[in-house]
């Protein structure tokens, strides 16, 4: 929050309403927050399925990040090239698609494991599955 505050306070040269116009940084913030929410879910929930969903949240945060940067690079292509930085902006969406593919695969296999586990142990609570304990 302090960061957001600083951001608003520091842009003294812009009209007030302009200061709220979202930029890359806003997307990154959103992405981070989504990421953190997902991490909190992964770390604190007991239901495996919800943990999986939290992982999907994390992956989406990453996707958002990638697409936002891709868009940024696409728009600022010429500026960046002038600075000697040549980046293929399309790799963002492409990589996003791969992440979606991996997420789908992960969901399929992970949920298969959940079903197998449920069939054997009659539970989906993660802290009841602690056979790896010493």
């Amino acid at each position: 929050m302090s960061s957001l505050l600083a951001f608003l306070l520091l842009q003294q040269d812009q009209p007030f309403i302009k200061r709220f116009e979202p930029t890359l940084v806003h997307f990154l913030m959103l992405s981070f927050l989504l990421f953190v929410v997902g991490v909190a879910g992964v770390l604190s929930r007991r239901n495996i399925i919800i943990i999986f969903m939290s992982i999907e949240l994390i992956l989406n945060a990453v996707n958002l990040n990638l697409v936002a940067f891709s868009r940024y690079f696409q728009i600022n292509q010429e500026v960046l090239r002038a600075k000697g930085l040549v980046i293929d902006s399309l790799m963002g969406p492409v990589f996003t698609i791969f992440i979606i593919v991996v997420a789908a695969a992960e969901a399929a296999v992970g949920l298969g494991i959940v079903i197998a586990m449920f069939r054997n142990r009659e539970t989906v609570a993660i802290d009841e599955i602690d056979m790896l304990k010493w």
Binding site: L43, D130, L132, K133, W134
Partner: peptide
């Protein structure tokens, strides 16, 4: 060290984070 190995991977993930 034994206390750290709880078998619950969420503990590990917490430390990781």
């Amino acid at each position: 060290f034994r206390a750290i190995q709880t078998g619950a991977w969420q503990n590990y993930a917490l430390l990781f984070t």
